[in-house]
């Protein structure tokens, strides 16, 4: 059965978003070692919404996180009602660049792509919806 929660998209609410994920994860009895990747993805996407989602003036947008088991893994959708923004369109960093040339822009989204099995973005019904899936092995 899916579980969802809503958090206001401000940087100081990141711990609240993470706590929502952890509560579901523990309640579902899923292995701790597989949780890290989902916490990472949630932080990266949540912070992207904080940075890019809310209009310059007006209230911060809201983020909905929807979690569910799917096959041998977990599917997580992160949706927001902010400005249309496709994080997957961001340019990937050059992970082979030397330290001096290493740029940090796009690193978070790069990690999201690499740590998950599948990542999809769509904009529908006025909402950004990023959906990720990762197998967590047999449980």
């Amino acid at each position: 059965m899916s579980h969802s929660f809503r958090v206001e998209a401000t940087a100081d609410r990141l711990p609240e978003a993470n706590a929502g994920l952890d509560a579901w994860w523990s309640g579902a009895g899923l292995p701790d070692e597989a949780r890290f990747a989902f916490e990472l993805v949630l932080e990266e996407i949540f912070m992207n919404v904080v940075m890019h989602g809310s209009p310059p003036e007006g209230a911060p947008c809201m983020v909905d996180v929807i979690l569910d088991r799917q096959g041998d893994g977990v599917v997580m959708e992160i949706a927001d009602d902010g400005l249309p923004f496709d994080p997957l369109a961001m340019e990937s960093p050059d992970t082979a660049a030397p330290m001096e040339d290493r740029r940090v822009g796009g690193l978070g989204v790069y990690l999201v792509r690499e740590m998950m099995d599948t990542v999809h973005y769509r904009h529908s019904e006025g909402r950004n919806r990023l959906s990720v899936f990762k197998s967590i092995g047999s449980t």
């Binding site: 990747a37 960093p93 992970t95 660049a97 330290m99 790069y110 740590m115």
Partner: peptide, 17 residues
């Protein structure tokens, strides 16, 4: 730790640090 190490490796940071 293994998970932190994975992030270092995936990001390429283990090549620059």
């Amino acid at each position: 730790q293994p998970a932190v190490k994975e992030v270092f490796e995936v990001s390429g940071f283990s090549k620059i640090i």
